[in-house]
């Protein structure tokens, strides 16, 4: 006999098509033994109330779709063990971005900042016949940078990003900027630094470290930001 597991939720609900304003919905759902992650529980809940809206795709922590605020902390539903969560499980959309519906936020501003750092390799030498060479050590510099899944857990937990989402690039964008600066194949490191030389774009980071604390891929945007700042200082002298 398996014992029934019931979880209590308190979920942020808002459908602009129906609701005047957002509200918190109290709802519970019975789980099956195979339901292990918060995402499993949400999918189960959706069978009960098909209007519960959230993004999801890979269910294994690589696509970055299901970032949300879980009991006050940003994370991915698919990598969060449901049994570890204090109940009622309070779910809110990622903070600081406009809500489209329920747990679905408008990520335009987040991606705009990502795009602003020119997130692509620039190398204007004629393309060689074969691969450009890179030593294993140089390649290792990209570890901890290229793995970002653009989930926005970090940027939406960063107070500096909340206050200036249009001006501060935010941890995810800055991590991406450093990913290209650190790539030995890229030729625009100095233009990339110029692009960030501004009181807001980079320097709004006050090393509060929220970003590091929430990254579901255990990446460290603060360290990348620190390295960019060091490079700025070094080239200034």
């Amino acid at each position: 006999m398996s014992t029934k597991r019931t979880v209590q939720f308190k979920i942020y609900r808002y459908d602009p098509d129906r609701d005047d304003k957002p509200y918190m919905q109290d709802i519970s759902v019975d789980l099956e033994p195979s339901d292990k992650k918060l995402l499993d529980a949400l999918v189960r809940l959706k069978v009960k109330d098909d209007s519960t809206s959230f993004r999801r795709s890979c269910r294994e922590g690589v696509c970055g779709s299901d970032a949300m605020n879980i009991n006050g902390k940003n994370g991915l539903a698919c990598l969060t063990e449901v049994d570890d969560l204090k109940q009622p499980i309070v779910l809110r959309p990622l903070p600081g971005l406009p809500v489209i519906r329920d747990l679905i936020v408008d990520m335009t501003q987040f991606f705009k900042q990502y795009h602003s750092i020119k997130p692509y390799l620039v190398n204007n030498d004629p393309a060689p016949e074969r691969e450009r060479l890179q030593s294993p050590e140089d390649r290792e510099e990209l570890n901890g940078l290229y793995e970002c899944i653009l989930c926005a857990c970090c940027s939406t937990s960063c107070p500096s990003f909340w206050w200036n989402p249009d001006k501060f690039v935010g941890p995810a964008g800055l991590l991406a900027a450093y990913r290209f600066i650190a790539d030995t194949r890229d030729q625009e490191a100095s233009e990339r630094l110029d692009n960030l030389e501004d009181p807001y774009r980079l320097f709004r980071c006050h090393t509060i470290m929220n970003c590091v604390d929430v990254c579901p891929k255990s990446l460290n945007p603060t360290r990348a930001i620190g390295k960019i700042k060091d490079m700025m200082v070094r080239r200034a002298v």
């Binding site: 190398n123 890179q134 030593s135």
Partner: peptide, 14 residues
């Protein structure tokens, strides 16, 4: 690779 794909590398850089 030219687009920037971060392939792992052998000691000779390939």
């Amino acid at each position: 690779e030219h687009y920037g794909m971060p392939f792992d590398r052998l000691d000779n850089g390939k």
